[in-house]
Design a protein around this nucleic acid. Structure first.
Lengths: 243, 243
DNA sequence: CCCTAAAATTGGTATAGACAACTACATAAC
DNA sequence: GTTATGTAGTTGTCTATACCAATTTTAGGG
């Protein structure tokens, strides 16, 4: 029987199952106990067990076949790399060592397109930070973030080379990043970018534009990043409903 | 009261709600009826209504705030462009006109890395098709697919310039594409690719590798695509759990 | 031995109800 | 006027149950 108070039961069971999978206690391709069995084992109703399992199916850890059972899926890269994460978390998930150098940190006025993305009026004061990002001491990306929320000017005081911006926003400012929309395209490094990323002029780069949302579906960040094409891959997972 | 027989009730209600949103009957930022209200309206229990709503939340059509209600989200590009789709469906969602020219269609033997991806032994006979993909009559991508399933050699007889491969696999061959894992990186066009895509040598391109899975988590396709960097953007949506 | 039919098992859908956590608003107390 | 407090309404969690659909297993019959 799982304890009731701190975290929801379906959450606790989900993490227990996730642990069984990642620690290889439950073997790839093999069935896990049925919903009814798990319910009995942990003293939970079938619907609660079901919620735990369905979330892990959506994340790609399990797959189900009606009438057959629930099975452990082959480990996938995307299980680790498709959550909304900060640069720090992303690079650590890739088992590299992240580092950051702040190039610009200032307040600036929103131009037309930025204002539209962040749903503010043009001219609104935004916090702007440009950071050069490193992985294992090699420059990997040049990232420019424009951030808007009430009190965002306090970010000027923060040490963004050693503290994670997303961490600060979530814990100290009450602006948890919950969702993001990204677009990715291929481009060539211009002179300034090539110099900062230490690649040749015209080298391949990934251009990423991200709008990040917090509670109430409110966009608070619009970020433009340039990643070295030879050192960074982007991963994604797609699903389709059956007919 | 929704009818019982053909499709699940939560599915019917989900599509009703989706329609209310896309037709602007329910307004962006405004609350939709509560779970209990919807249940009463359509003769459904609260948990059934909840399932419909939760799926639309995951797709980005709605967002919820505990204690406040469920609200219509601002329309997002990713609502249309992050499902696992065929090239045809993808280009149509972007409101362009797709076309295809088949360059190679043959059976070939799996090399080591392909065999690992598709979980077969090296030397296994695979169906291989290379297609040049067009949007609005301009070349957009060069795509090479390696496909493995029992009877895949029958694909040699198919007209892959006018029929959708995924459509055929799902309806005629019993191999529905259900999930895919992709990796994306930036590169430069080589001579052969530049010629076929009608871009200059060294132009920016997106390199996409996709492994596609069908029932029982079985990989059946490994595809490598080269997209023109100046004409194609890739979209994705990321989410994060709250702390 | 093989084939068929029935039974058991599994996930899929759906219901009804309960309480908790949270928000907004009205009301009362200060 | 301002601050508590209560109340109603909302989503979040959880239970217990029932039946359906698909598959596997078992039992039986040839």
């Amino acid at each position: 029987m799982l304890k009731a108070s701190p975290l929801p039961r379906y959450y606790q069971l989900r993490e227990i199952i996730r642990e069984k999978i990642t620690s290889n206690q439950w073997i790839e391709g093999e069935p896990i106990p049925s919903e009814r069995e798990l319910g009995e084992q942990y003293g939970l109703s079938r619907m609660t067990v079901r919620q735990s399992i369905m979330e892990l199916v959506k994340e790609g850890f399990l797959y189900r076949e009606q009438g057959r059972g629930t099975f452990v899926a082959r480990p996938k890269i995307t299980q680790q790399l498709t959550r909304l994460t900060s640069f720090t978390e992303d690079i650590q998930a890739r088992e590299q060592r992240p580092a950051t150098k702040v190039l610009i940190k200032e307040m600036c006025e929103a131009d037309g397109s930025t204002a539209a993305q962040l749903r503010v009026r043009p001219g609104q004061l935004l916090f702007r930070v440009q950071r050069l990002r490193f992985a294992n001491d090699a420059p990997l990306a040049l990232e420019t973030s424009l951030i808007n929320f009430i009190g965002c000017e306090k970010l000027l005081e923060e040490d963004l080379e050693h503290d994670s911006l997303y961490q600060l926003l979530e814990t100290k400012y009450g602006v948890p990043p919950l969702e993001a929309e990204q677009e990715i395209e291929a481009g060539l490094a211009h002179e300034d970018e090539a110099g900062k990323l230490k690649i040749i002029l015209g080298g391949p780069v990934l251009l990423i534009r991200r709008t990040t949302y917090t509670e109430r579906n409110q966009p608070f960040e619009f970020a433009t990043s340039i990643y070295r094409g030879d050192k960074y891959r982007f991963y994604s997972r797609l699903t389709r409903e059956r007919a």
